[in-house]
Amino acid sequence: MSLSASDVEKVSLLARLLLTPQEIEALTSQLGQIVEYVDQLGEIDTEQVEPLAHAVELVNVWADDEVRPSLPRDEVLSGAPHRDEDSYLVPAVLGD
């Protein structure tokens, strides 16, 4: 399958990326190559193969419901581009 410019536009909208027409053109070709590469998997006949939910054959990895310490707030917020004393700051979220 090949990727169209409108596919890239749609995906960039979903990822909230603002792309120039030049970037869309370049990414359509680059992303297209990646998709085509992965698409090789489609050449294998999997008609008789059971679907697999996970690559590792492990199930039921649990943790007990016991609270452990969280990270100190200053440490958590230290990586944020914008913050105030207790929260992350982001461009206004309005509506719902």
């Binding site: 649990w62 943790a63 419901d65 452990r68 990270l71 958590v76 207790d86 929260s87």
Partner: peptide, 30 residues
């Protein structure tokens, strides 16, 4: 294993898993 307690001061109950740090590994609460 961060607490779910309601009403704590903002951003005092987070860790690399729930704040979405790369490489963190979630483990299901039984």
């Amino acid at each position: 294993r961060c607490s779910t307690q309601f009403g704590a001061p903002p951003n005092t109950q987070t860790c690399p898993v729930c704040s979405g740090m790369p490489g963190a590994l979630p483990v299901l609460n039984r």
